[in-house]
Amino acid sequence: MRKLIFAISALALGVSASFADPQADREGLMKANGKAMGALSAYVKGEKPFDAADVLAQLTKLSDDAQKISDPALWPAGSNTGDSTASPKIWEDAAGFQAALDKFKADTASAVAAAPADVEALKVQMGAVGSNCASCHQAFRVKKG
């Protein structure tokens, strides 16, 4: 019975059950992306000896998170209140935003498919993957005080 009531209320509210707090969830994914980029950067900068298995693991993490973060349920209209740095342009230019997310998905997936075997290859892959961060944040994020 309780399950039924829960299901009915979820339906009534029209929310996806998996994202109770889309803002917190997408921010968590963004932070995880940053962590993975940081881990990869340690190899590029030569702070750690190249470790192909870990590099692949980090790229896979980025690719998995790119899938998750492009779920429209994470970006409900009007979820840029409070301390959210989501720009209204996300909804004003929904097609442009989706295209940016799709590019991030494609670039991370191809990085996993062609896993780098050395630092030089990783540099190229990181450049391709990392350029998505700035290009999307250029249009779709607003810094707040």
């Binding site: 940053g34 962590k35 980029m37 940081g38 944040h137 994020r141 607003v142």
Partner: peptide, 19 residues
């Protein structure tokens, strides 16, 4: 040079062009 902050947040907004 790279557009990444020390904790690997990225450059955004008008600073992207500047960077």
């Amino acid at each position: 040079e790279t557009g990444f902050t020390p904790d690997f947040d990225s450059v955004g907004g008008a600073m992207v062009e500047v960077q």
